[in-house]
Nucleic acid binder design. Structure first.
Lengths: 175, 175
DNA sequence: TGGTGCATGTAACCTGTTACATGATTCG
DNA sequence: CGAATCATGTAACAGGTTACATGCACCA
């Protein structure tokens, strides 16, 4: 249901073809609402026939440039001002952590070590993204990125602390 | 693909019927890998015909109590020791935050206020869960819960700081 | 004996993923 | 010309959600 909104959001920064929007989405929405090409084309067709967007220009190779209609803008702010219940996300990584007790404590330590390393790398990647960001990029885009960075940082800290905790236990109580 | 694993994980704490496992999953896995009744029954049938679990007892009302087989245990630890790439999760709430610039600054402030409040409440809820937790509940179950609490805390802090930041701006530059 | 809870399952639908199909245009 | 890029779309499949269908067993 919210790919609809993501597509409208992508069109807020200016009109564009499906092809353009996919690129925009890879640049900006990849971590928030990833979408594939097939999905986006379908959604654009549906949005157009619902009157929320319209074709502003047609170009070479059958290019259709879409833009928001007033109806679309209205729908976007309507959606933004209504609360949405968060459905808990499924994460293989979190499932692994939850079931970590099934492994030997050596394997578990190894796993946690990799978790810290992966999240540290993610912090670095996101921080680099933030630092190469346009100075004039919207406040909330930076804020959203900032939240992601904090999440990665928190996870790193958590994993590191858990690791020292189980190492302390291991040293006292055995393997 | 990982509902399979979640189901195996649920059976690690002892044999049970589909009905039992749904309750277990509501109790323990609701935030990590939520599953519906229909889904779980289907998965159990598939796991049984793949030999990863087996019927240990049949009871009244056609009750089938399943238990892990050695093959199932092996599959579980195989999965736990292989890395899984995280596919970015879709979150309506994060999409809202990302697009918050579309709203008036008053509406945006209001929204952020609600975000802080909702996450504070979530912190409280999770903390209560942790405190009523069994003393003998597995280390990694508590650790997973702890991670969730930290996430909620981080989000709260982030939203509060963002709120004061835009309020400062609003006071200087106008709404 | 009648309601609550136990217990299993099917069907329709929606969303998202992967792979494929097709062709025009631009530029070196 | 030929390769890369632009550009749109379809089809098959996998996973998840909601709603419905069915019936036994227990106990107050």
């Amino acid at each position: 249901m919210s790919l609809r909104i993501a597509a409208l959001g992508l069109l807020k920064s200016g009109p564009g073809s499906g092809y353009d929007l996919i690129k925009r989405s890879h640049r900006h929405l990849a971590n928030i609402w990833p979408a594939t090409q097939s999905q986006l084309y379908g959604e654009l067709a549906r949005l157009a026939s619902a009157g929320l967007i319209e074709v502003s220009t047609t170009g070479p190779r059958g290019r259709k440039e879409y833009r928001l209609t007033d109806q679309g803008r209205a729908e976007l702010s309507r959606w933004l001002t209504t609360p949405h219940k968060e459905k808990p996300s499924r994460s293989p990584a979190r499932l692994q952590l939850f079931l970590l007790g099934e492994l030997s404590s050596g394997q578990a330590r190894e796993h946690l070590l990799q978790v810290t390393q992966r999240h540290e790398a993610e912090c670095v990647r996101l921080a680099a993204l933030r630092d190469t960001d346009d100075v004039d990029s919207p406040l909330y885009h930076r804020a959203a990125l900032d939240l992601e960075i904090r999440m990665a940082t928190t996870t790193t800290e958590w994993a590191r602390e858990l690791l020292t905790e189980i190492e302390a236990r291991g040293a006292v109580g055995g393997p």
